[in-house]
Design a protein around this nucleic acid. Structure first.
Lengths: 231, 231
DNA sequence: CAGGAAAATTTTGTTCAACAAATTATATCG
DNA sequence: CGATATAATTTGTTGAACAAAATTTTCCTG
């Protein structure tokens, strides 16, 4: 018997393709997404593409100004700061709620921090960054709210968007591994106050680094029409 | 000179009309929103209505299952509980951040709790409920994140949706007034630990009451086609 | 009469062509 | 050169159309 939830809808498929391209960094922030061009590129009608764009706007990956069209979202430094404000809110609460976390959930947490270590050992910094986000995601999941989980996922996606390419550099990822491990062990020991402090410092420094990278990389690249590469 | 941001877009106007009807309780949870019917009722094309529906889905006011269409969102008790989980997360963090709130922001807080008292004195329980939510909204705003403000607004809208009509009863609103006042004065005194405790109890009890109301009122009313009243 | 297959109907998903309105680019004139 | 009128793009919206999926009705059979 097939899964109960499978009715693929074209507009969501199209949204998925666009989402991938954006998160993969193929579409620089600020790039305009012209309706006719992308409808053609994704092989859907303009109406369907517009519905896909609306979904991506809701996810915060693209912006939309009436009569100006959609553009890949370019985060201002204020918005980058907000990302860390949100992360702090969610993760601190997650730490508090870890008091009532199940055995399995805590095991999963350890699992994920080990994945971070493995990736770091292999010098795979891209993977290390992804794994680290998964670790923090697990902390948030202790709250037990799917909607907050989703918010974290969205915020994490935008964070990646902020330093799209430059994030696979070693100095961008290496310093955090040990701190993830430390936070994890504190949580396992039930030292939630210590974990909270460590987490707050962690996020403060991370914000500083990302803001710096964003500033040097320059925020508003003009970026012209951006023809979608043929598949 | 007119405002710089005014380009009203029809799909958003339509979404606004629908949103009002839903929050006003004119459309019971579970009511299906048939595309042709409502396109006609709101005087827009079906395509435009679909874009409006997509916005309301993103806001969490309606659900949408592929090939089944949109329905006014009917919250399960699990989802109602989640609303309070989210409120707790946001409001507790707001209390913490109140340490760095500006003089004006604190004055605004007092302003709003006074509005709650005024409405209660006037026995306007509907207004009292609205004002109370505005008070708690102000607490969340101490965090300083527009996106979290928006999340709270969305969650509050859904909470209202949960006990649409029955909420203007006296016993539904009266007990909370004094507690809002207490929390406010604690915050003004800088007693954030006390405010946190009070807030947690407040939300726990509120959740209990709303869950009870939802259970008695019955969750999934069938509710047939629901012809939109002529304007 | 129950039960269920088959057909008819409804409703959603998607496309296409068209056009008005707003924006952006271009050319024209002082 | 700068302001302005004109043309070219691009978005917003519509209406009709049709395929696919879901719902309802019909009808047959045990």
């Amino acid at each position: 018997m097939p899964e109960p939830d499978r009715p693929l809808v074209l507009s969501q498929t199209a949204a998925g393709l666009l989402r991938d391209k954006i998160l993969r960094g193929e579409l620089a922030p600020g790039t305009p997404l012209r309706e006719v061009i992308w409808a053609e590129a994704l092989n859907v009608s303009r109406n369907t593409l517009r519905e896909a764009l609306r979904d991506l706007v809701a996810e915060g990956l693209i912006e939309h100004r009436p009569h100006h069209g959609a553009t890949v979202r370019a985060l201002t430094s204020a918005e980058i700061s907000e990302i860390y404000t949100i992360r702090l809110t969610l993760e601190l609460r997650g730490v508090t709620c870890s008091a009532y976390a199940s055995k399995e959930a805590m095991a999963e947490l350890v699992e994920r921090v080990e994945a971070v270590q493995r990736a770091a050992l292999a010098r795979d910094w891209k993977q290390s960054g992804t794994a680290s986000l998964e670790f923090h995601r697990q902390i948030v999941s202790f709250i037990g709210s799917p909607r907050l989980d989703e918010l974290f996922a969205s915020v994490a996606a935008q964070a990646r968007l902020a330093f799209s390419l430059a994030s696979d550099a070693r100095r961008f990822q290496e310093p955090w591994v040990a701190r993830d491990v430390e936070i994890c062990s504190m949580l396992c020991d039930g030292d939630r106050a210590g974990a909270s402090r460590a987490l707050e410092l962690y996020l403060q420094e991370s914000e500083r680094v990302v803001l710096e990278a964003a500033r040097s990389h320059g925020l508003p690249r003009p970026s012209r029409s951006a023809a979608p590469a043929a598949d």
